[in-house]
């Protein structure tokens, strides 16, 4: 049977590095999978657990979180906070039995258009193999949100 599943992937990116990087991917005319929906934030430091959980609850099959490389944050330290939060979030989700292969965290600078395309393509390929995500139900979401 041919695999016709088209995953929906939400990308939370920072304005200064990855968003500019994704822009560069476009201006360099590099093609990448159209499954990704980019949500722009000023900084990865803004990206909270509940935004990731909400995306999963609303039916995202995968998430990419990407910001500036360490020490390159426009706001000095936002990406360090994001990195710490990511470590805790990953452990918590794995403990709760969520397949964290669906959630990717990476650094893409404004000069790394090709890297962005590569990350999107790899993620889409992997999630296509994993199949549609089981939605985190509302009760579970509420429970996790109150703890996180």
């Amino acid at each position: 049977m041919e695999n016709t599943f088209e995953p929906k992937i939400v990308a939370y990116v920072c304005n200064w590095c990855t968003y500019a990087g994704a822009d560069l991917t476009g201006t360099s005319r590099i093609k990448y999978a159209a499954n990704v929906r980019i949500v722009r934030f000023p900084c990865t430091g803004r990206i909270d657990y509940n935004l990731l959980l909400k995306a999963l609850a609303l039916g995202a099959d995968g998430i990419i979180v990407s910001g500036c490389h360490p020490n390159d944050c426009h706001y000095t330290s936002g990406n360090f906070h994001a990195r710490r939060r990511w470590i805790v979030f990953k452990q918590m989700m794995e403990y709760m039995g969520y397949d964290m292969r669906r959630v990717k965290f990476s650094w893409v600078s404004a000069a790394e258009g090709a890297k962005w395309a590569d990350i999107v393509n790899t993620t889409v390929r992997e999630i296509r193999e994993l199949g549609p995500a089981q939605r985190i139900q509302n009760e579970e979401f509420r429970m996790m949100n109150s703890e996180g």
């Binding site: 000023p42 900084c43 430091g45 803004r46 909270d48 426009h74 936002g78 906070h81 994001a82």
Partner: peptide
């Protein structure tokens, strides 16, 4: 400066 780190915290 509007980075939003406090929001997530």
């Amino acid at each position: 400066q509007g980075c939003g780190t406090c929001v997530a915290f």
